[in-house]
Write a protein that binds this DNA or RNA. Structure first.
Lengths: 343, 343
DNA sequence: CTGAAAGCGCTTACAG
DNA sequence: CTGAAAGCGCTTACAG
């Protein structure tokens, strides 16, 4: 039998004895050299694997294997906060963080092969749209997988970390209502993204609670990024009865909306209040500094890493979906609306 | 003498002979074991380094080892572009990228031990202030080290990748002069950072070339970030004869200056033109979109990775300092100054 | 602290 | 194809 855990590692001599061949023969097989009959080679190879033999020097090495961190669309500063959280937790827990290939267009089979070959502890994926095939490949191979802020949920069993998007949408909109706004628009992210839908539902819930009507014409979608939101902003502000405030589903979208206002000669927050979502560092640098709903991105990264390590250790998570609290950060892009007839 | 490139690697026996001690003694030193006098240890250690001895098993092992990427101050979106470049090149070249502990406060000795233990191919460090001790530890251990945009140069032998900061400062300032500005201020980064000094010198060269006087009162320093630049902006704009344009040593500083202008009721670019440096994604999202000097950050990351792999392969770089071209990107934060007496 | 000697794990050259 | 034998690079236990 192959030695169990904790035993001293196998030597070529031990394998040679088990295989009933001489040590030099085992050495040849182990190093892929010639001069061994196919049958002998196969038998020896099997025993080498069984004894988990590794070349000298490889020994004590790699007590802590790496975690693969996959960042899709490495363009938003959003990512940086997540990276920071994952890395800090990894350093604390003694897990190396290796940056992986983007998930998009990667086949589940080859991805899993790569991860297995490199003996990763598992994979953390950020804001990726995982396909059913990818998800299944990981599940079948039992490779731990944690998704941060998943765009879609290929399976209810997916382990994911996110934020309280609905509550955030509610808080951001309530803030605007509290300031006196009555005509409030929303610019969602991707219409199909779960986190985005939750934010827009929170927006709607706030309107409902305040007894304000929901006007579908005041809801647009901007794919979370700047450009489309800029265009949606122009459209919203060109309405016959334009909104006095806009709740944006991301900070980038808020910036797009603010630029649209600037183009139309409107000042923020005097003529238009804008609330973002994320609280990227850039929110503080904007002119005016952006009022926004903070997602604890670094914490989400930390939780994802710890959850992954627990999965890798064979533990089952208490719950497959963790949501961290969002928090409204009031800065200077929101103000009471101008008294009617004063604009 | 130590063996040259291409020679078979040194053995402990060779080092023992060179040191005039026995092989077991060298073995003890090489493995950091006790029972060697300080003097002997030091002499042997020096020879081990000179002979570039590495433990058996380290030899040719592990065809693709990881590269450690160290990011100091993981707060600026600047980093994200660099990460993208390094990762993309790493994926192409088959080198894993592992995120490392920040350099600050890390002792050279333990850092090198970590890197050696984990058998990294080398280390890429971004905008770090390396200490002499850290630099020496790497040099002694012959671990390849490449610094992207070094803050300081602990040794002229340091291999680094940067951008043409002087030319960028020149181009940014020439743009303002070309628009008709005559009173142009500069907000540098850290006064001690080489890249920052180069940018300010470029600014000054542009003034000289245009026959404009250099006024020390118009130069401030903001540590590359938002807050200090905001304060410097307030001071500059409160001068008896305030500038009509400001060249900022980073985009973040440009945002700080723009916020200062906004606080004082000034509009950009009508009342004040601002040029940034970096061209972060956030430069496009600013209101108004920021005119800035683009650093090819992703390319710098790619070049750093490739340079590191070449060093790890034993090649000497053609030159130890590579500077990639910067490029002026004109957006909407710059305009001709208001005719005198019209403000 | 130092090193002669034994030993370990593996590789290599070569006889069968 | 196979393995006895020599050898390599290193480590370990121990005598001085």
């Amino acid at each position: 039998m192959a030695p169990g855990n904790g035993q001293a590692r196998a030597t070529l001599a031990a394998v040679a004895e088990a295989a009933g061949v001489s040590l030099p023969t085992v050495s040849k097989v182990a190093n892929g050299r010639e001069g061994v009959s196919p049958e002998t080679r196969e038998r020896v190879q099997r025993l080498l694997t069984e004894y988990a033999w590794t070349p000298p020097g490889t020994r004590g090495a790699a007590p802590d294997q790496a975690v693969e961190l996959v960042l899709d669309g490495l363009t938003s500063p959003y990512m940086l906060e997540v990276i920071r959280g994952v890395t800090e937790a990894g350093l604390q827990e003694g897990a190396d963080i290796v940056l992986g290939k983007p998930a998009e267009g990667r086949s589940g089979a080859t991805w899993v092969r790569d991860v297995t070959e490199k003996k990763r502890r598992g994979v953390i994926v950020v804001t990726s749209r995982l396909t059913m095939g990818q998800w299944r490949a990981f599940a079948r191979a039992r490779i731990p997988l944690v998704v941060i802020d998943p765009v879609n949920l290929p399976s209810p069993e997916l382990v994911s970390v996110g934020a309280t998007n609905w509550a955030g949408g509610l808080a951001g909109t309530e803030h605007l209502i509290g300031l006196g706004h009555r005509r409030i628009a929303a610019v969602g992210g991707r219409e199909d993204a779960v986190c985005s839908r939750a934010r827009v539902h929170g927006y709607r819930a706030a309107l409902d609670a305040a007894g304000l009507p929901f006007d579908p014409a005041l809801v647009g979608y901007g794919d979370f990024v700047y450009e489309p939101a800029y265009r949606v902003g122009l459209e919203l502000l060109a309405l016959g009865s334009p909104p006095t405030a806009i709740f944006a589903g991301s900070d980038l979208q808020a910036f797009g909306v603010i630029e649209a206002a600037r183009r139309l000669g409107l000042q923020v927050p005097r003529d238009l209040s804008v609330v973002g979502f994320d609280d990227l560092p850039a929110a503080r640098w904007a002119a005016p500094p952006l009022t926004t709903v903070r997602q604890p991105l670094a914490d989400m990264g930390r939780v994802a890493l710890r959850t992954l390590l627990r999965l890798a250790a064979g533990e089952e998570p208490d719950n497959r979906r963790v949501e961290l609290a969002t928090e409204l950060v009031v800065r200077e892009s929101t103000a009471p609306p101008m008294p009617v007839g004063t604009g």
